[in-house]
Design a protein around this nucleic acid. Structure first.
Length: 937
RNA sequence: GCCUCGGUGGCGGAAUUGGUAGACGCGCUGGAUUCAAAAUCCAGUUCCGGCAACGGAGUGUGGGUUCGAUUCCCACCCGAGGUACCA
């Protein structure tokens, strides 16, 4: 007997779609356009896991739905193929990252093909492809050759800036530039050496070189991410790590801070995501106040949002890295200060922010002078002040700020109470409505009125001014890595110089080793051919460097986010060799209409890409200042990690239930060795890794039970589940519908396969409606009212659910419909055909197959897309719950069109209601038409 | 620590946004079918008490607003993501 052969159906239609290029999008069409985009994946060695398809399936459903609705849909896919894991694998195995990346991409493609996505593969892009990164480098050079004009509020060319300098110096230039940019006249400018001019220009360029703090690991000779630093030592090898300043390429994203903030208002993103970006940009309006140092000519600035609390300052704190610390520290305190600096350098930024339970710090021996009273204020250093935020120094007001309060208590620094009726014995008063006292001319005022008065006073004395400060920092754009885009820059006598655009792409050179060089240079320092011959304009051997016509090329590469900051535009015109993308293509597609991706990118990719888009907008390359107005954040599918418990110092593992009897360390075990009941296959475990070959087990009831924990799905946690097995066992349509059924797309949830069977059963039942004894068999009879009701209710609900991205409830709705139709044994074409079309975005393989058997007749499916009819959905009666004091006590069926008064009368006349009301006094009747009747007694 | 989100049966999750909590699915229990099993179908399934009708409790915890709170407000606990070089 013929059955629902999903594997055969999957293969048939996947082949058909590929051969017919069914989903190829055209850049010309009479139909309205719609661009559905997924965040492209990093092709990891672990393969595509079940979390990736969650978003891709959702976007695919929407893309297919939109095609049915008559749109010209662009739905592309590609790979973010530069990244650290491929490089680390290369370091371990010597395999070229390009080779492993290619293998991984092949694997990803096979896996995706099995799920039946409607991607236009003719537009595939890879960020590691020279034909792609050629244009990433090109954009880098455009940024390098631009500055941000705060008056016109956009990026402009550096050539134009030079002309301004030549005629009028920089006094009238209102630019986003470094804080230490000196003021010069046109004559000054003309008198400068090329080197000096270059240094000035770097203070304006949108990509520039600067000293930035990094986690430097001397033993590994490399820079580490905060993630890779644990308790001050490297994750790999446990070597000490220190904070160190290094020359880095930077991106002046802060120039765009205000626009990035303002334009959030036009984005149709979740409020939470916008809030996250808002907080990340962190605009605060306040004041910059300048303090003199006692017995020194130097001054330093602090930023504060509460200038009104200036009279409450009893000490000052500088970040340990602050440039003045070494200069002002008195000899008595030098040793302590230096020791503290060393200690702070060992902590990562995150650790410093996390460890605030007990404040630490040391006194420098120096004093600042209060700008109004002239009082001497002790100057401390502490790691709760971060060098990277504000000015790297604060004025501490212990009565008004909790952190300052704790610090003062810790070190017995006096606290001046500056708020009326305030008790400072327990904590600081951070209430902005509190009224000031002990504050001279500000007495009796709340913060709102006092702040402008204080700023006015400071401006009068030249000791401060109003200032807007952003938490957002310029982005470090250098990576001491191999597997990334080379930076198209060479160093001509120390001056960073652009490699001319026409020689792009500057292709990654071959190296023998992917590790840093012995003298601590980035991996590209190992390249033999990595020098620029300026005369002949080509890449030559480093042996030829003479610094006359042959110069060294930049050794840093670009970060992972470079390639992903503009790829969405490249899909519009992916094979263009002459430019990033044609004006024609971008004018047609404009922007992404629906973007789907994880919320873990909230303050990374989603901010950087907005920044690049705005820059491209300023330079006229794109017509929209935002590329993705509508964004859906799919929640991550989390892994369900499994742990075995190794008894410390042994190779014995104790079962989860007994682990408390021993001193143990949990070890991640591969979830594929664990069954549904959390029992570990100990034999597999022994062969899994060589060091476990002679492992012994302490079991409970003869079995070894693992511990479980929900974590991010990642190869290193051995909790990755691949979708292939599910596709093979149940078919692609089951996987697609199950992932949607799992829960709302935007919520993070752990992967589990319980329930797969239910979705699979649904598809089998649906297939069965069309078949009797395995033979296709549908009836041409007219449907009954009851059948039409089921159909139209389903169309209404599913359509609404798709439009609102509630794919989980849409799947439930299908299940309800099929259950009801099964009970009626419906096999009528006029009911089933529209359902096939409706189901096709979810289960395209099965739907295509049934549609073929139905004869591709659009007229039986309400002409290509089913629409519901209101008359089949309207109910004539409504069951009203009758409540007494909010508790449900009775139900009464009433006509839906009955008005409020009649409902009340009818209900009160009801026998059961009257019996319920005996011995009770009715106080009020609340009638909510269509909803409830509540009797208050 | 800070920012953002979440917490509902044995499990994944519904709930028209202040109006019958637990839709749909899994699992479990009983039944039909079968020599038997699988598969399928039917019924039941929040917990406690009761043969039942029914009664009581119940949406992380503690308070509050309201005729009525999973939903709104306050405080707290727990979990997840991000925290600037993972992508």
């Amino acid at each position: 007997m013929k059955t629902y052969d999903y594997n055969k159906i999957d293969r048939k239609w996947q082949k058909y779609w590929a051969e017919n290029q069914t989903f190829k999008a055209d850049n010309h069409s009479d139909k309205p356009k719609f661009y559905v985009l997924d965040m492209f994946p990093y092709p990891s060695g672990a393969g595509l896991h079940v979390g990736h398809p969650l978003g891709y399936i959702a976007s695919d459903i929407y893309a297919r739905y939109k095609r049915h609705k008559g749109f010209n849909v662009l739905h592309p896919m590609g790979y973010d193929s530069f990244g650290l894991p491929a490089e680390q694998y290369a370091i371990q195995t010597g395999q070229h990252p390009a080779v492993t990346t290619e293998q991984n991409i092949k694997r990803y493609r096979e896996q995706m093909d099995k799920i039946g996505f409607s991607f236009d593969w003719s537009r595939e892009i890879r960020t590691s492809d020279p034909q792609y990164y050629k244009w990433t480098q090109w954009i880098f050079l455009q940024l390098f050759n631009s500055w941000y004009n705060n008056d016109s509020n956009k990026a402009e060319s550096i050539e134009a800036l030079i002309r301004i300098f030549e005629t009028g110096g920089n006094a009238d230039v209102n630019a986003a530039c470094d804080a230490d940019t000196p003021v010069f006249s046109a004559d000054d400018w003309l008198a400068m050496s090329p080197q000096q001019k270059n240094n000035i220009l770097f203070k304006y360029r949108l990509t520039y070189l600067a000293e930035a703090e990094v986690n430097w690991c001397p033993a590994l000779g490399t820079v580490l991410a905060n993630d890779e630093v644990i308790n001050g030592v490297s994750e790999r090898g446990g070597h000490p790590v220190e904070r160190k300043k290094m020359k880095q390429w930077m991106m002046r994203i802060t120039a765009y801070a205000e626009r990035l903030l303002q334009d959030l208002d036009v984005l149709d993103w979740t409020d939470s995501l916008k809030e996250m970006q808002r907080n990340w940009i962190g605009k605060s309006t306040g004041a910059r106040i300048t303090f003199k140092i006692d017995g020194n000519d130097k001054t330093f600035d602090v930023f504060t949002t509460r200038a009104d609390t200036l009279f409450g300052v009893t000490f000052m704190v500088m970040a340990p890295e602050h440039e003045l610390v070494n200069e002002i520290t008195t000899s008595d305190n030098l040793e302590q200060v230096q020791q503290y600096q060393k200690q702070a350098a060992r902590k990562s930024e995150r650790e410093r922010m996390a460890e605030v339970k007990e404040k630490t710090g040391v006194f420098t021996g120096a004093y600042a002078l209060h700008p109004l009273t002239g009082d001497k204020i002790p100057l401390w250093i502490s790691d709760y002040v971060l060098a990277g935020y504000g000015t790297g120094a604060i004025m501490a007001v212990p009565s008004g700020d909790q952190r300052d309060y704790e610090f003062a208590r810790q070190f017995d620094i006096p606290i001046i109470n500056i708020f009326e009726g305030n008790d400072i014995s327990e904590k600081a008063n951070e209430d902005k409505d509190a009224v000031l006292t002990n504050s001279g001319f500000l007495n009796g005022l709340p913060a709102k009125e006092a702040i402008p008065r204080m700023i006015e006073e400071l401006e009068k004395r030249g000791a401060g001014k109003a200032e807007v400060n952003y938490r957002l920092r310029d982005a470090v754009f250098s990576r001491q890595r191999y597997w990334g885009e080379p930076v198209p820059i060479y160093y001509k006598n120390g001056v960073a110089t652009a490699i001319p655009e026409k020689y792009l792409p500057l292709e990654l050179p071959e190296v023998e080793k992917y590790l840093p060089t012995e003298d601590g240079q980035p991996p590209l320092g190992n390249a033999k051919n990595w020098a620029w011959d300026e005369t002949n304009e080509k890449i030559v051997s480093v042996d030829l460097i003479d610094n006359k016509s042959v110069f060294p090329i930049e050794l840093n590469t670009m970060p992972g986010w470079a390639g992903s900051s503009w790829y969405f535009n490249r899909y519009m015109d992916p094979h263009n060799d002459n430019e990033t993308f044609s004006k024609e293509a971008v004018d047609y597609w404009q922007k992404v209409d629906l973007y789907l991706g994880g919320s873990e990118h909230a303050t990374g990719h989603l901010l950087y890409s907005r920044f690049w888009q705005k820059f491209l907008y300023d330079t006229g390359r794109v017509p929209q200042p935002e590329y993705s107005v509508k964004l859906i954040n799919q929640g991550m599918i989390l892994g369900y990690s499994a742990f075995a418990y190794r008894i410390n110092g042994t190779n014995k593992f104790v079962s989860h239930g007994l682990k408390d009897q021993y001193e143990t360390t949990p070890v991640h075990v591969d979830v594929n060795m664990v069954d549904d009941y959390d029992y570990l296959d100990t034999e597999k475990f022994k062969t899994w890794r060589p060091d476990f070959a002679d492992a012994e087990f302490i079991r409970e009831d003869g079995k070894y039970k693992v511990g479980r924990e929900v974590e991010k799905m990642s190869k290193s946690k051995y909790n990755v589940v691949n979708p292939d097995d599910i596709v093979a066992q149940y078919g692609a349509d089951t996987l697609r519908m199950y992932e949607m059924f799992l829960g709302p797309i935007e919520i993070a949830k752990p992967w589990n396969t319980a329930g797969l069977k239910g979705v699979h059963n649904f598809l089998r039942k649906f297939w069965s409606l069309f078949h009797s004894d395995g033979i296709f068999d549908v009836s041409l009879e007219e449907p009954t009212e009851q059948e039409l009701r089921i159909l139209h209710k389903t169309i209404k609900k599913v359509t609404e659910d798709i439009e609102s991205f509630s794919f989980n409830t849409a799947v439930s709705q299908f299940m309800i419909a099929v259950n009801e139709l099964s009970k009626l044994k419906t096999n009528k074409q006029k009911i089933l055909a529209p359902l096939v079309v409706l189901l096709s975005p979810f289960a395209p393989h099965l739907a295509e197959d049934l549609w073929e058997e139905l004869g591709h007749d659009d007229s039986i499916a309400f002409e290509t897309y089913p629409k519901y009819e209101e008359r089949y959905i309207k109910e004539n009666t409504k069951t009203y719950p009758i409540m007494i004091n909010g508790k449900m006590r009775h139900k009464i069926d009433l006509p839906t069109n009955m008005d409020k008064e009649t409902i009340e009368k009818t209900v009160l006349a009801d026998e059961k209601v009257q019996s319920l009301l005996t011995d009770k006094q009715l106080k009020k009747v609340i009638v909510v038409p269509g909803k409830i009747v509540n009797l208050v007694v």
